[in-house]
């Protein structure tokens, strides 16, 4: 597999325009509607699942997503789960107080390394946007970001399947790349570059 052949698939409706962050990539990703995920090929590529993806459809396609992971694929999920469609991931909602909400780095990662500490939790004076909950990853997952209570706000799971899961509880890199400035610009491209290396792992 050459670097240019790394397949990137974004789950989105057929009628929706491709996110700007995806259009800027050297290799334009393909898209697949959530209700068409039964056509997802098991291969070592990246499957990006935006925050507001239909989870009923994801749940119906969970066996296909598992097969994708077991083939060495990387799934990047920005979904607040209520259906168990992704191995090893559980979402819990919280109600952080405005004054104490922060995001802390737990481990370096190329997606978040260029982002300033304050950028992680504040934008135009508003905090709390990064996530309104947290994830309970499986044992062995590598936590990248934590909330003030120590809960995971981004993690990598290399243990639940033969592939890799990169997950946040609602912090959608396809969106943050578009409307943020500073270190979040290019975050999705960095995710793709990281996933390509991860798939070669």
């Amino acid at each position: 597999m050459s670097p240019t052949s790394f397949p990137v698939t974004i789950v989105q409706p057929d009628r929706a325009p491709l996110p700007e962050a995806a259009r800027r990539l050297e290799q334009v990703p393909r898209t697949l509607a959530a209700r068409a995920l039964h056509r997802l090929e098991p291969e070592p590529g990246l499957l990006a699942v935006p925050r507001h993806t239909d989870q009923e459809a994801l749940w119906c396609a969970s066996a296909r997503i598992l097969a994708f992971l077991e083939a060495g694929g990387v799934v990047a999920s920005f979904v607040e789960h209520y259906r168990p469609w992704l191995p090893g991931a559980r979402y819990r909602h919280t109600d952080h107080r405005l004054t104490r909400y922060t995001v802390h780095r737990a481990a370096p990662h190329p997606v978040f390394d260029p982002v300033d500490d304050r950028e992680l939790y504040e934008f135009r004076g508003v905090v709390g946007w990064f996530a309104q909950g947290y994830l309970e990853p499986c044992v062995g997952a590598e936590v990248l970001l934590r909330d003030p209570d120590g809960h995971a706000l981004a993690y990598i799971d290399r243990t639940s399947t033969l592939g890799t899961v990169f997950a946040t509880p609602g912090a959608d890199l396809l969106v943050l790349d578009r409307w943020r400035r500073g270190g979040f610009v290019g975050a999705f491209a960095r995710l793709v570059a990281w996933a390509r290396e991860e798939a070669w792992r």
């Binding site: 405005l98 934008f123 946007w129 309104q132 969106v175």
Partner: peptide, 8 residues
């Protein structure tokens, strides 16, 4: 009222 606007 204490709202925390969301980017979404």
């Amino acid at each position: 009222s204490g709202g925390r606007p969301s980017p979404a």
